[in-house]
Structures are given as C-alpha cells and as structure tokens.
Amino acid sequence: MSHYSHKTTRFERNLATREAPWVKWTLLTLSLSFFVLFLILPLVSVFFEALRKGWEVYLLSITEETALAAIKLTVLIAIISVPLNLVFGVAAAWLIAKHDFRGKQLLTTFIDLPFSVSPVIVGLMYMLVFGANGWFGSWLVEHDLKVIFAVPGIVLATIFVTFPFVARELIPLMQAQGRDEEEAAVVLGANGWQTLWYVTLPNVKWGLLYGVILSNARAMGEFGAVSVVSGKIRGQTNTMPLHVEILYNEYNFAAAFAVASLLALLALVTLVIKTRVEHRASSHFNASHMVPADINTLSPRVVP
C-alpha cells in the first residue's frame, strides 16, 4: 500500500496527527523491543538450536527414516484436508455472500465455531464419535476400519481445525464485490457453474489463495487435536509436530529443532506468500473497482 512508498507517513507530515519526537521514539522502542523479544527471538532460536550441532546432524535428523515418514504423512494430511475445506469454503461463501436468507447470521457463527474450540477438545470429540467405545466404534471394529489412532482420524481433526479458514477469507471479499457481475452473467445466459468459474472465482482468486495457504500452514502444523487422535505410532501415525514432541521428550534437542526448523520455514514461506497475496489483492481489488467491468472482455469467456 501507499504508506510504504513514502519516506514518512501522511500522519507524520500532518501537524495535527504528529507526536513529539520523544513520544514517537518511546513508542517505537517499546513496541519493537516487544516484537523482537516475543517474535524474533523464538524464530531465530529455532534455527540456532537446529544447527547447534552442525549441518551433518541437521541433515541426518531430517532425512532419517521416521522423520521422512512424518514429513510424508504431514503432506498427505494437508493434501486431503485442504481441498475438502476449499470446496466447502467456496460453497459457504457463495451461499452467504450471494444470497439472502433467514438464519444467515447464525450460520456464519456456526462456521466460526471451530476457531473457538480448544484443539484438545477437537481430538476428544472425534474419540467420542469414532473411538473404540464411541458411537461408531463397534461398527468400525466389525468392518475392520480404523479411524482413531490412524490416518482418517488425523485427517478429520485437521479438517475441523482448518474448517473456517477459506470461508472466512472469501465471505467478506465476495460480499464487498457485490452481485452485479454475477447477475449480469446469469442474465446473459451463463449457468451457475459458469458464473462461479468464470466470474466469481477470478475476482476472488487472491483471497482464495490466501485462505488455502493459511489452511495449509495450520493443517501441517496442528498439534493438540492431532496428538489426541494419532496414537503417535512412529513411522505410521506420527506427523511432523508430533515427531518434534517425541524427539524433544527424548532429549534429542538437535533433531527436534531440526524438524521444527522445517515447520518454521513453512511458516516463513506462508508469510511471504501472504504478504505478496495481500499486495496483489489490494491492487486487484482497487483496479476492479475503479475500472468498470468491461462486458466485452467478459462475454466471450462466459460460454466456453
């Protein structure tokens, strides 16, 4: 945004919105010290601890058999759960942003619900439903299916904790963009899928990407919910965060931090993409609002 491109912000150039220098420097010092103390130091220490015993130990720790199994499982979990929540997010956003109906507010609250449930309780809930003594427990045993202490349980818990991310990103974006373009498409003869695919989704692609990235980071990093349902069987149901915990509890700190550093890298990549996406989204959003939608560039794409 524009406030980055200037040497000073508009507030600093305005007498009425400017503080005395000592106030400014005090605020800057206090807030940035806090920032360094609470955010930068933990991040730096992950990499420092990971490399404390040298590159050899580091590389060995992340290429060792159970570490690789944990990485593979973590990627698999994300590959299954993120697309499922993506489809849900688009459906929910289409429903809430493009339609009016009674109970909309209630539905929005329900979609936010997973944010306020402790991860540990998420794991517990799936134990109650699918565990050995749970609702479907005996049925699952009869059919030789395993959910708890197996991959499906981890997937379910992950879906729950990442449930609202895509919907939360898309709903305000699609509401802000209104319905005019979609209504024009429908009037011109596009069906629902065409309208969604050629009109709505291109308009929200950056928000969509952001939601997917956030879900992915959370899916790969989820700890509490997954630790309840996983059973932590090494090489089988051990995800990366759980592997970090096991190594740490075995006092194998270098290896624990080595695997943790991969997750920290993932977090950094997520933040970089997020910053890019936000930048793109704001310029895209501004552009699409300043320039009226050109019906000529739109219509040839509506009919594939």
């Binding site: 991040l43 992950v46 990093g221 965060p241 624990a256 943790a260 920290a264 977090a267």
Partner: peptide, 10 residues
C-alpha cells in the same frame, strides 16, 4: 503460521 509445538520448544 508457526506450529504451536515449534513455538513451545523455542
């Protein structure tokens, strides 16, 4: 973005 377990050990 940082997994909670990573934050915890750090």
């Amino acid at each position: 973005a940082l997994p909670t377990a990573v934050a915890g050990i750090a």
